[in-house]
């Protein structure tokens, strides 16, 4: 009835033959070359264990921390970058309302910080201004400011580190380029001027720090 062209194997025989094959004892060499087999096994086990040792992360639940080795210069660059970033944030929240986000100030009211000789002078100057504020007439980039008593700057209540960061930012933003300001120096100035409650007087600072620069 079955239209098989080939005789094939009857199921009964199949079970019989294969059971016999299964019972037979095989010397391990039969039909296979032992040496290459062991070699292949060995290689696989070797590769597998290396893979396991490398990538299981000692069976911990959390992924490993990326450990990145930085050179001294890279570390320094990274520190400065972070300092400037923080300074920018402080500037936006504490200073930009008057000196404007672009640092150009508002004519006759708020003096510019961009390109200002006050900013780029001795770092003590900007630190002092932020610490205590500033009043009285001053000259910035040849323009007069602080002519009316209302147009003055009050002390900005921020800590030493923030002052260091924001001054460093201001001294290096919008084309300014001046040295970094350090927290320890700010702290020194704060202790030295601890007794002073008044704002600085514009002419006094101008003649102290900028006598050579603003001759006009």
């Amino acid at each position: 009835m079955a239209p098989a062209k080939f005789d094939g194997m009857k199921d009964d025989d199949m079970v019989e033959i294969h059971s016999n094959l299964g019972r037979e004892k095989h010397p391990p060499t039969k039909g296979f070359l032992v040496a290459p087999l062991i070699f292949v096994f060995g290689c696989l086990i070797f590769v597998c264990s290396i893979q396991l040792a490398h990538s299981t992360n000692s069976f911990q639940v959390h992924p490993p921390q990326e450990i990145v080795e930085l050179t001294e210069e890279e570390k320094e660059a990274l520190r400065l970058e972070r300092k400037l970033d923080s300074g920018k944030k402080i500037f936006t929240s504490k200073c930009a309302s008057c000196h404007q986000p672009n640092g150009l100030g508002i004519a006759t009211q708020y003096p510019p910080l961009a390109g200002s000789e006050w900013v780029s002078a001795n770092p003590e100057l900007i630190t002092k201004i932020i610490l205590k504020g500033l009043k009285g007439e001053i000259t910035v980039k040849g323009e007069k400011y602080g002519t009316s008593p209302a147009a003055n700057m009050v002390a900005v209540p921020i800590n030493d580190r923030e002052i260091a960061n924001v001054s460093t930012y201001v001294r290096n933003a919008w084309g300014n380029s001046a040295s970094e300001v350090f927290e320890s120096d700010v702290a020194d100035i704060r202790t030295n001027t601890a007794g002073q409650n008044e704002q600085w007087i514009g002419e006094a600072l101008q003649s102290e720090y900028l006598s050579g620069a603003s001759t006009e």
Partner: peptide
Amino acid sequence: IPAITGRPIDKYY
């Protein structure tokens, strides 16, 4: 395969 070819499986062990 064995049913059709009529040969037992090679290297059955």
